[in-house]
């Protein structure tokens, strides 16, 4: 279970998050939506301790990770897998080496065990046979699949997705959505997806959280969000700009 209490974060003089509270149950699939630059990725990175909040608490299974140093955080992070926006593959390694990376220091596994786990993870993301390719030889969608294989190969309890469909065409986006659902259902993991792709949000989430003006503005099922008559939520769903706001 993930719980966030009164989380605050600013970069310089600009506050990004100002009193965020949320709770994500074990096995739940939650999508965080909100405007670009609204602090969704910043919030996600604070859930795994990649960024430290200025104030507030982040509890993973009841343990506050905010005061932890990097070494203690490494232990907590073993529960997490994360897919980054640009996949963040290690470009000096092959696909198989990337996916096998989490087992680098696992001396209880033989090379054959690691190879089998890599093959299974790549099969799950439908990339069997790509083991010896370099990340530079892969398309955007394939890179995200490899990133996902690397994030789930050690069977984490929680998987975080940072803008998983950004920059992909609708067909590849659809296949990534299906993968997220497959991983969620097969591995029974807690899923947190940050996106502004509303089609994706509707499909992969049990619950949608909307981040607006530095706080959680709404928390509801996808059906309730899409049926909402709240002007802020409606504008976001329909992609209509506010005439009073300056965007440039």
């Amino acid at each position: 279970m993930i719980e966030v209490f009164d989380l605050k974060k600013a970069f310089g003089a600009s506050p990004i998050l100002d009193g965020v509270n949320l709770r994500i149950e074990k096995g739940e699939s939650v999508v965080i939506i909100g405007r670009s630059g609204g602090g969704k990725s910043v919030l996600l990175k604070q859930l795994i301790g990649l960024l430290k909040p200025d104030a507030g608490r982040v509890e993973i299974e009841g343990e506050d990770i905010v005061p932890m140093d990097e070494r203690r955080l490494l232990r907590v992070r073993q529960k997490f897998g994360m897919l980054f926006q640009g996949a963040a593959l290690f470009d000096s390694m092959t696909v198989a080496e990337n996916v096998a990376f989490p087992f680098r220091r696992r001396h209880d596994l033989t090379p054959a065990d690691v190879a089998r786990k890599v093959t299974e993870a790549l099969a799950m993301v439908e990339l069997s046979g790509a083991e010896n390719k370099k990340p530079s030889e892969l398309s955007g969608g394939m890179r995200k699949r490899v990133g996902l294989a690397r994030a789930i190969v050690y069977q984490p309890e929680i998987v975080l997705y940072d803008e998983p469909t950004t920059g992909l065409d609708p067909i590849v986006s659809d296949s990534i959505d299906q993968l997220i659902m497959r991983v969620r259902d097969r591995l029974q993991v807690t899923t947190v997806v940050v996106t502004h792709d509303m089609r994706s949000a509707r499909r992969v989430g049990h619950r949608i959280l909307m981040l607006h003006e530095k706080r959680i503005y709404a928390s509801a099922t996808p059906e309730e969000i899409f049926a909402s008559q709240d002007p802020v939520i409606r504008r976001f769903i329909e992609g209509v700009s506010d005439p009073k706001e300056h965007y440039f």
């Binding site: 070494r71 490494l74 232990r75 897998g81 994360m82 640009g86 963040a88 593959l89 680098r104 994030a151």
Partner: peptide, 17 residues
């Protein structure tokens, strides 16, 4: 380059200092 392409963050999420 590893830092700006989030590879350092990826290392940290993979429990590697």
């Amino acid at each position: 380059t590893m830092r700006v392409t989030e590879q350092i963050d990826a290392l940290r999420t993979l429990a590697t200092h």
